[in-house]
Amino acid sequence: MGERLYLYGIFPAPGPQHLALTGLDNQPIDSHTIEEFTFLFSAAKQERYLASRRNLLGHERVLEAAMQAGFQTLLPLQFGLTTEAWEPVQQELLVPNRDRLKQLFAKLQGRREVSIKVMWEPDQELETLMRENEALRLERDRLQGKQLRMEEVIGIGQAIEQAMEARKLDIIQALRTALNPLAAEVIENEPMTSAMIYNAAYLISWDEEIAFGEQVEALDAQFEERLRIRYNSFTAPYNFSYLAQP
């Protein structure tokens, strides 16, 4: 039984060779090619890797460094994947998925993943809503301080919730209109916090990133203090590398 190996990602052969990088556990990065596929790996010094911030960033840094070195087409592997030999990797990963892996390489050729996460301040947005919607504000004020029937409580609550949802959808539609035409593919993920209203990843051409970034900046200026937009312009293409059957 050989040394346990930690796997980072797969590249079209010949892929990165002799990268002067260190990965998890401060181990040097190496590569191994099986047919058309080249794996980046390092020696695994732990039986199981905890998904700590340090480990996750270490995994990501290896892939980003390879991309920055010019190897832009890659399939990132899930964090924590280790093996004691290459034979099960070939038989369990490559053999049943060879065609799909090639399809993913073709889709990702010349493209990169970028993402945005959009947050707002719910209390501030509600205050703005009440200033702008006089009828809703007057109804809310009329009911304040009164002993309300259940249907009144439900009614005003639903009206406010629907109005807030409409404001959120207006923002999301503005984002879609501005950004989606620049992308070959878009994946909208679930928001990660109660203040996050939009969380999306985009597959764009490498040479379109400047234009995409300018659109994000324009949206940030358009909504001023109303939104906080986090833009990640450089990441491994996790959202567009699933091995689900087409």
Score class of each variant (00 low, 15 high):
residue 180 N to S: 06
residue 76 P to M: 15
residue 36 E to D: 15
residue 106 A to T: 11
residue 159 A to L: 07
residue 230 R to S: 12
residue 76 P to T: 05
residue 156 I to D: 04
residue 22 T to G: 00
residue 222 Q to A: 09
residue 181 P to G: 12
residue 12 P to D: 08
residue 170 D to W: 13
residue 218 A to F: 11
residue 59 H to E: 13
residue 161 E to D: 14
residue 23 G to H: 03
residue 116 I to S: 01
residue 54 R to Y: 10
residue 244 A to H: 08
residue 201 A to H: 12
residue 177 T to A: 13
residue 31 S to K: 12
residue 120 W to R: 11
residue 45 K to I: 09
residue 141 D to K: 00
residue 164 M to W: 06
residue 169 L to N: 10
residue 189 N to M: 09
residue 12 P to G: 08
residue 147 Q to N: 10
residue 2 G to W: 08
residue 63 L to V: 09
residue 46 Q to N: 10
residue 69 A to L: 06
residue 144 Q to G: 06
residue 158 Q to R: 03
residue 152 E to Y: 01
residue 196 M to H: 03
residue 181 P to S: 00
residue 178 A to N: 05
residue 131 R to T: 11
residue 129 L to D: 02
residue 246 P to A: 08
residue 68 Q to L: 12
residue 61 R to V: 07
residue 104 L to K: 13
residue 30 D to T: 05
residue 124 Q to N: 02
residue 90 Q to F: 06
residue 228 R to D: 06
residue 119 M to N: 15
residue 155 G to V: 04
residue 140 R to M: 03
residue 71 F to A: 00
residue 54 R to Q: 14
residue 60 E to H: 12
residue 14 P to L: 02
residue 202 Y to N: 01
residue 109 Q to P: 15
residue 94 L to E: 03
residue 208 E to G: 01
residue 149 R to S: 07
residue 90 Q to E: 06
residue 58 G to L: 01
residue 77 L to V: 04
residue 45 K to P: 15
residue 98 R to Y: 07
